[in-house]
């Protein structure tokens, strides 16, 4: 029984990180129909930023966390402005290829600057194990789950209740009409990238707590799994991304628990294939008609 619970917590821990990253994929897809494959690499940049602040600048963990999230946010907006905005009216394939290009650029730049090997990220968060009902839970797992859930609740509030959040929904539904309403579409899109990247930054910190090293390609697999989570939940849907993230995390935990941990990654991509064949719109996604 206690093994089941501890596997469940493991699943929720990695699932909440996938969910945070999946949200960025889904929000960006919702607003400009772009699969931003550079999104995973933002996590890598966040991990290096935390490492740099703590090891090279010898500053404290709190500052490292704040600066890492800030670095991710700024990077997300800069990528949008430099790489995607000029292609706003280009075919979607050009955007997609550009996103893949940015991903390679970031990975290779990291390798050039920090070397191909991994850097050890010092502990950003630490605390004693938490005991609930005789069961001990790792402090980091608990922090990860709580921080993710709180972030998602804040995001839901932002999107449903604030003026900017409503503008995001309006732009993602009908960009032309949103402009006629007086909504500054460019600002709204940048804001969406900022929020998505900040969530990836939070994910990056939580990931670095669980796997404390930064390497140039660490974001690639994590990003791909988060992408699967976004598709599973229904790409473009915010609750879908959250649900998809937790499902992928739990699926991995279950596969590991039954002793098939070598199949962990395989199962995630098997889920992608099944979703695309059986229900391409995902669990909560809606089929949208192509705009003419």
């Amino acid at each position: 029984m206690s093994l089941v619970i501890s596997q469940l917590i493991n699943g929720l821990q990695s699932g909440s990180i996938y969910a945070l990253v999946a949200l960025g994929y889904s929000m960006v897809y919702g607003i400009i129909m772009l699969l931003n494959f550079a999104h995973g690499d933002i996590i890598m940049v966040g991990a290096y930023a935390a490492w740099f602040v703590m090891v090279r600048l010898s500053l404290n963990p709190v500052l490292a966390i704040i600066l890492a999230i800030l670095a991710c946010t700024v990077l997300g907006v800069v990528i949008e402005k430099v790489a995607y905005t000029p292609l706003r009216s280009s075919p979607r394939l050009s955007l997609l290829i550009t996103a893949i290009g940015i991903s390679f650029l970031l990975e290779n730049l990291a390798q050039r600057v920090f070397g191909a090997g991994a850097q050890k990220v010092p502990a950003l968060i630490s605390g004693p194990a938490i005991e609930i009902g005789g069961q001990r839970f790792s402090f980091i797992a608990m922090v990860t789950i709580v921080v993710s859930v709180v972030s998602m609740a804040l995001l839901t509030f932002l999107v449903r209740k604030t003026k900017m959040g409503k503008a995001m929904r309006a732009v993602s539904e009908d960009m032309g009409t949103a402009q006629l309403m007086g909504i500054n579409v460019n600002l709204t899109i940048s804001f969406t990238f900022a929020v998505g990247s900040a969530l990836a930054g939070i994910g990056s910190i939580l990931y670095s707590c669980a796997y404390p090293q930064a390497s140039p390609t660490m974001g690639a697999m994590l990003g791909l799994k988060a992408f699967v989570a976004a598709v599973l939940g229904g790409i473009g849907s915010i609750p879908g991304a959250m649900l998809g993230g937790f499902c992928i995390g739990l699926a991995e935990a279950i596969v590991s628990a039954v002793g098939l941990s070598v199949w962990k990654d395989g199962v995630v991509f098997a889920i992608l294939i099944v979703v695309l064949v059986v229900k391409p719109t995902g669990i909560l996604g809606r089929a949208i008609r192509e705009k003419v």
């Binding site: 409503k166 503008a167 309006a170 539904e173 032309g176």
Partner: peptide, 21 residues
Amino acid sequence: PEGRRVFLNMTAEENLEMGAF
């Protein structure tokens, strides 16, 4: 706009709020 183009997934009041952006 032609064809009304209301934001179909938003409430009536949210649509109006967008008009006052």
